[in-house]
Design a protein around this nucleic acid. Structure first.
Length: 760
DNA sequence: GTTGGTATCTGTGGA
DNA sequence: AGATACCAAC
């Protein structure tokens, strides 16, 4: 037993936290409400393990963001010192990528495989769609991508997909019968290119464990004696399957601890399922699972906690728990109603100034949270105008900028010449006379010979001028590759800039744009430089410090702009609600609370979708410590058009007693019209038909009691329709109406809320 | 093959 | 509104 001084850290924990920290052996589920000290429990648990003699390299902790992982490592090292660096703490993607680097050859990948990002993935799909001569509006790469992604997340291989009648029928119904073929080709092409997409980092590891060549699985079972998973509610089937492989086997000690909160599950769209928490309980029940519930909130005032509790009760199922705070009473929740998006921006920033003055808040204690990244612009404008320092997170990250991606494409091709997307990107950049038709010839030859573009490139039959250009391109890349083992990342990148001609291209560009690009390239170079200077410290005992370009690429592939080192300075945070998860601020502004925006129109057509939006709202509310401000605008510009939206239904779920301004919000009518067919809403956005061009001035709705079956009616948004039937009595009459102008014409409408004009 | 201008499309969240 | 695809003219 360690002496008192080394267990002193445990005294700062409450009873349940202490239990969760010290019950280290056997399966544990921690249900942790917002602000309940979840990170604390996890880090103390790891420290506790190490202090009681567990080797740090036998501990694996999986998180969702690099930031969470880094924070954890930092906090562990405060307790146990530098050996914290030997803990396997990282994101699912980064830890798995690291294992795959070591084992990739066992499943037919090169160890220096490329990681395809979203753009690469879409581009590959786009190319396949083109080659198959399919209509890319029907086979929208975004749609196909998400189908492929969810197939992989549910352990459905192309073979299984082919045999899966449900999926095939769905595709046929959606007029995309060839989705299966694209999936199959996509997988083959990634493999040929020596590339893994984000899902592959999970899927291929599962494959590795499943096939278990050379007993590789035992090696990792043995290495990871203690496994912890953060944000377990956000794991998908595939992730849980991998975790099970690692800990759930005959004679395993099953030292697994998962931490999660069903109320904060907000990633169903990428395959996460709350079912995993429920399954976890079942799966480990026979092995003496212990469940701990952290219900005390240490973050927020009573008002904020109560509002969050109340809002979440509108969801259907949840793990029963009652979050409470002893922080006492604070400010009521403020609601800002604005007429336009612009006014919303101004009034939010006014309120920020007021709060700063009255309550002496610093910028870093303030966050503006929105549903979509596109909403940041207006707030940026006002913040700039008022001279307030701010920083926008999300949106496109540094590494996704065009000029940066170009250079990274060179790096990628040098490291892995099979990388098809990198090759396509730079084969004619800077311009060297190799146009689209030449690239297509190369691609066709590669497809015919079942080889990579790089292999086909020297053999293709093209005009002699193109031939020369191709040869010179190959020579440049090969020359750079020769330096891979001798140059460090920085030296080689400099060489790339020089020999590719990119350096020259931008140096001679004196336009404002060009200078901005040059600036970005310089920051990239700075980044590479600091990687080279600092890399040594990043690696554990069993890894040599490595400052090669190969390693640099691996480091940045999973980088997001949330991971950028805390830039110095005191700034207001602007980010999506999704990226705010896990963070806290003294004052939080949740903006754009309007129907079709928050909740998003993409999620409004199902109860599940709405529940997830509501959990998202719950996450947003619980970020706040003291001040919470909600806002909406009656109109805003979206897609270049003015749009009028009703206030969000979520506002009605906020108990009035906790609102600062008690003048009722229901004086403004909140639209609760059920919207059973989301497809038609999407259709409405996509092709504004005649139905959308009704002039409101000529629209005179009748009283809903007059509506009868068989009538022809006019709806402001849906256009002309025929009432097919009416059900329900008096107050709750629901009409089924056929709107001929909609993609999905049959709608059920609550007459109480609908505005309909009788035509005859 | 390249250029520059116009038409068209698209549109949540993020590792 | 902004990005991208497409197309005619060089």
């Amino acid at each position: 037993m360690p002496d008192n001084s080394s267990t002193a850290y445990l005294s700062g924990l409450n009873d349940v936290q202490l239990q969760a920290v010290t019950n280290t052996d056997g399966p544990v589920l921690v249900v942790a409400g917002p602000g309940s000290g979840k990170t604390r429990v996890l880090t103390y648990r790891v420290s506790h393990l190490i202090k009681t003699g567990v080797k740090p390299y036998n501990i694996l902790t999986l998180t969702f963001t690099n930031k969470a992982a880094r924070e954890m490592k930092d906090r562990i090292s405060i307790e146990v010192g530098p050996q914290a660096n030997q803990v396997w703490a990282g994101t699912f993607h980064s830890i798995f990528a690291r294992i795959l680097r070591m084992e990739a050859e066992k499943i037919g990948y090169p160890s220096n495989f490329t990681i395809y990002d979203t753009e690469d993935t879409k581009s590959v799909i786009g190319n396949i769609v083109k080659e198959l001569q399919l209509d890319k509006t029907v086979y929208n790469p975004n749609v196909i991508k998400s189908r492929i992604s969810s197939a992989k997340s549910n352990l459905i291989t192309p073979k299984l997909y082919e045999a899966n009648e449900d999926l095939r029928t769905q595709d046929r119904m959606a007029k995309r019968p060839h989705t299966y073929t694209i999936y199959q080709k996509y997988v083959a092409r990634c493999k040929k290119s020596g590339a893994m997409d984000f899902d592959d980092l999970l899927y291929r590891l599962y494959e590795l464990f499943q096939k278990n060549p050379d007993g590789v699985l035992d090696k990792y079972r043995n290495r990871f004696q203690y496994v912890m998973v953060d944000e377990f509610q956000d794991t998908n089937q595939l992730q849980y399957a991998i975790v099970r492989k690692l800990v759930n086997y005959e004679n395993s000690p099953r030292n697994i601890c998962v931490v999660g909160d069903d109320a904060q599950s907000i990633y169903a769209f990428r395959g996460a399922t709350i079912q995993n928490i429920l399954d976890f309980e079942e799966d480990f029940k026979p092995h003496g699972i212990k469940v701990f519930k952290l219900e005390q909130n240490y973050r927020s005032t009573e008002e904020i906690v109560q509002v969050a509790n109340e809002v979440i009760t509108y969801n259907r199922r949840q793990i029963p728990k009652k979050i409470w705070s002893d922080k006492g009473s604070g400010q009521r929740i403020k609601l800002i109603r604005a007429l336009t998006d612009n006014e919303e921006g101004k009034r939010i920033v006014d309120t920020i100034l007021e709060q700063k003055n009255r309550s002496h808040l610093s910028n870093s204690e303030i966050a503006i949270l929105y549903r979509t990244n596109a909403q940041s612009r207006i707030f940026e404008e006002f913040l700039r105008r008022y001279n307030l320092n701010y920083r926008v997170f999300g949106g496109l990250s540094f590494y996704q900028r065009k000029e940066v991606k170009d250079i990274i494409a060179y790096m990628r091709l040098v490291v892995n010449p099979r990388d098809e997307e990198a090759l396509r990107r730079i084969i004619n950049f800077p311009k060297r006379g190799i146009g689209a038709s030449s690239v297509e010839k190369i691609a066709a030859l590669a497809e015919a010979n079942n080889e990579t573009l790089w292999q086909s490139l020297p053999k293709v039959k093209v005009a002699s001028r193109t031939k020369t250009a191709l040869a010179s391109f190959v020579k440049t890349i090969n020359g750079l590759r020769k330096k891979l083992n001798t140059d460090n990342a920085y030296e080689l990148t400099q060489r790339i800039l020089e020999e590719s001609g990119i350096g020259k291209l931008y140096k001679t560009d004196t336009s404002i744009e060009g200078m901005g690009r040059m600036e970005n390239i310089n920051s990239l170079m700075d980044g590479v430089k600091s990687f080279v200077d600092e890399a040594g410290a990043e690696f554990d005992a069993d890894n040599q410090p490595d400052i090669s370009l190969t390693t640099y690429l691996q480091n940045i592939a999973l980088h997001t702009d949330l991971d950028d080192e805390e830039k110095s300075g005191d700034y207001i945070t602007l980010m999506s609600v999704h990226s705010a998860k896990g963070l806290e601020f003294k004052s939080v502004f949740i903006v754009g609370l309007e129907e079709k925006l928050f909740p998003s129109f993409m999620s409004m057509d199902t109860v599940e979708g709405l529940d997830e939006e509501r959990r998202l709202f719950y996450v947003a509310i619980t970020r706040a410590e003291q001040f919470l401000t909600l806002s909406y605008a009656n109109s805003r510009y979206r897609y270049g058009r003015m749009q009028y939206n009703e206030p969000s239904r979520f506002l009605e779920e906020v108990p009035r007693d906790y609102l600062e301004n008690t003048s009722s919000i229901s004086s403004r009518k909140i639209n609760q019209e059920p919207n059973p067919s989301g497809a038609s809403v999407k259709g409405f956005f996509k092709k504004p038909s005649a139905a959308t061009r009704i002039d409101p001035k000529n629209f005179h709705p009748n009283d809903s009691s007059e509506i009868q079956a068989g009538m022809n009616v006019l709806h402001l948004k849906f256009g002309k329709g025929k009432v097919l039937s009416i059900e329900g009595g008096e107050a709750n009459r629901v009409a089924t109406i056929f709107f001929k102008d909609l993609d999905n014409p049959q709608k059920r409408i609550m007459l109480k809320y609908a505005k309909l004009q009788i035509l005859d």
